[in-house]
Design a protein around this nucleic acid. Sequence first.
RNA 1: GCGCCUGUGGUGGAAUUGGCAGACACGCUAGAUUUAGGUUCUAGUGCGAGAGCGUGGGGGUUCAAGUCCCUCCAGGCGCACCA
Length: 832
Amino acid sequence: MQDKYNFREIEKKWQDVWADTNAFKVEEDPEKEKYYVLEMFPYPSGKLHMGHVRNYSIGDVIARFKKMNGYNVLHPMGYDAFGLPAENAAIKHNVEPAEWTWGNIAEMNRQLRELGLSYDWDREVATAHPKYYRWMQWIFIQFFKKGLAYKKESSVNWCPSCQTVLANEQVVDGCCERCGSPVGKKNLSQWYFKITDYAERLLDNLDKLEGWPTKVKTMQRNWIGKSHGAEVTFQIKDYDETLTVFTTRVDTIYGTTFMVLAPEYPSVLKMVEGTEYEADVKAYIDRCAHMNEIERTSTTNEKTGVFIGKYAINPFSGAEMPIYISDYVLMGYGTGAVMGVPAHDQRDFDFAKKFGIDIIPVIDVHDPDIDLNNLQEACAAEGTLINSAEFSGMDNKEAIQKIAEVAEERGIGKKTINYRLRDWLISRQRYWGTPIPMIHCDTCGWVPEKEENLPVLLPTDVEFTGKGESPIVTSKTFVDTVCPICGKPAKREVDTMDTFLDSSWYFLRYCDARNDEEVFSKEKADYWMNVDQYIGGVEHAIMHLMYARFFQMALHDLGLVKDEEPFKNLLTQGMVTKGYYNDKDEYIIAKMSKSLGNVVSPAEIIEKYGADTARMFILFAAPPERELEWSDRGVEGCYRFLNRIWRLVAEFIEKGNNVPGEYEIRNEADKKLAYLLNYAIKKVTEDIRDRFNFNTAISSVMELVNEMYKYKEGDVNHALYSTAVKTMIILLAPFVPHITEEIWENLGYGGSVHAQAWPSYDESALVKDEIEIVIQINGKNKEKINIPGELSRDEMLEIAKENDIIKGLIEGKNVVKMIAVPGRLINIVIKG
RNA sequence: GCGCCUGUGGUGGAAUUGGCAGACACGCUAGAUUUAGGUUCUAGUGCGAGAGCGUGGGGGUUCAAGUCCCUCCAGGCGCACCA
């Protein structure tokens, strides 16, 4: 073996071997237990970043580990290739989105291969490829046929100067990021998916996802936002229309002193038409159009609103209440109308204070600190109803039920369940996405393209001016077509799909990526699905994961897949950050980003230290769920460790005593090495398998290596030492695949280290004859003693009482209590 | 603003089930080797002179709290057209 660790040569050599032998190709094999490990596929920006390296290193360790444990491992990779950046490149640099994207994919492919990842490249997918999006369109049509897709008016961000639709991201402080002019709203007819039909199942199934982090499930629960409440209908005085509100606190209905509608509430304009209020109301609505939801619902903002000149009648008390519009009411949640109960809701309280509206307390919370008749803030606590006619004196929880029932009897309301989750708006007025395969016929309405005509190809005769509702409109060949039903001239939908759709089923396509006959074979999907381990950034905790769950459920209902849930276990990795000095010379730790200039490129690190070092550092520096701060010093430390291993093995091979196998424990040194060897096997196995704590797995191997360095200078038991070398290389193989493969070859074992069976450990080597325990007095450490490992509590206490130091400390004191925890400590509680 | 999460030596982190806080690594200090430097090896390294004190701050539960409860503070992520 060479005496220098030449990573450049080694890594290239083995990457070529793995590619030439198609080392990670897998087929369905009913004889073997399958394991599907999946990392979230990247958007092909052109350059791999450290977040990718972290994500794929984690997945690769798991994939290689499972393979060595005998599983048939599916580990695929692909590209989420549609999206806005390609289109921006087209507008800015006059390059075709397709050309830009395929170029980036080629580059990213090269970089991924340089990392030595164990992918089955035969299953690679790219969502922008017609052979992929053809099936995306097919799925859309199935959803449409099932009634899951529908069209509805909805507003988009519109830049009046660029004459184009803007993503939320392109709106900076209410202005267009490109030209800086204030952004407005524009109503368009757009496609939606009825994800709300699945709200209850999406919520209920969360309980079954035991392999998901609690925090992700909590976030999804909150996002779905199920609340039980009631709808109540209010008459409007001298006007022929009613208002229906949703409230979770119908018990407070007697405290309602005003009504508030969302500015977008459909009939507002009609209600003020021709009245003295019209101008003010219109101006207010216009102002709200420039605000986003976060600004609108902020509870720190001073409340704003406008009276619309109408009064609603409280169906319970008969009171007349002014109707306002205000931005804190959202059209998208509930009914877009709320009853204002200032005494018991803080937002309503703020609004009432601002507009001088009465505050009527209707819940007595039995708190002496609260003066109900002079409230300083809203009081949302439970209590007893007051000022509430026949309901006064009733417990408020009971009243929620009772009042809803009475409303239902009188035909003015009912109990309802409301979700915060809204239907999924999937239309995008953009070019670089899957064309929505729908055709509009004046006679037949919206009709799907015939399935045999799929894919509806993206037109290439398109101009990227950055203007207009969708660039596809500029195509001379795309729009005009004939109706698939009646054959009359018809027009194609020019909108494309949200790229979140593409990424909502790619894990299924991987199961049968080259199928041109169907979306995927059910048999193959049934074999591989569901994904045993999904790994990706925590930023996807809600949207991507919710959409993918929805797709899987809908496809399940279509009979295409057997499970309702796609991802059995989920690992959310933290971000990769790096410190930098800002303008004020303060040290800031932030996500790596170009604009901050704190980016370390993986290519740079691979060039300098190799892929093995890069992989190892990123796994060693922090557990995967946590944020990881990049440290150049830390990288050097890992590089040093790999060199240390290289030298250790080189010397070992040089000496020529490679005789692994059964060994005897002859002395303390043997025992210590055998202990650390078996401990490392146990630790690495459990840390990978049960908790993904790669950092502690690696540190246990470091401890073993440190001991081997000491051990080899003494009286060497060759069978033991050879076993330690061999095992140590196997343990490291999932983390640093190139160096271990090269060493494996040099050790002369034959085959690939990655095809070896995972080692098991000897429990008896982990038993210590003597253990150190601490003796505490009143919880403070006072003495450490060595005792045999298997002593009972009483025996431990006897020894402690005989100890000289302890004797001295408890002499003359009143011993209240003695606690012994076998294997750990003794605590003596004394008084006086 | 709302929701979720995180906070431990000079630094990244360890402590998996309430039971010795600081494993492993970086950095630093001293020594050895080589000596042009680096590399490599050995020893030391939470703070404090010490009794002791120490896991963002304050309070609580417990024989015992980094871990459980309350509260405050700081930072991060998501918020529906970025992916």
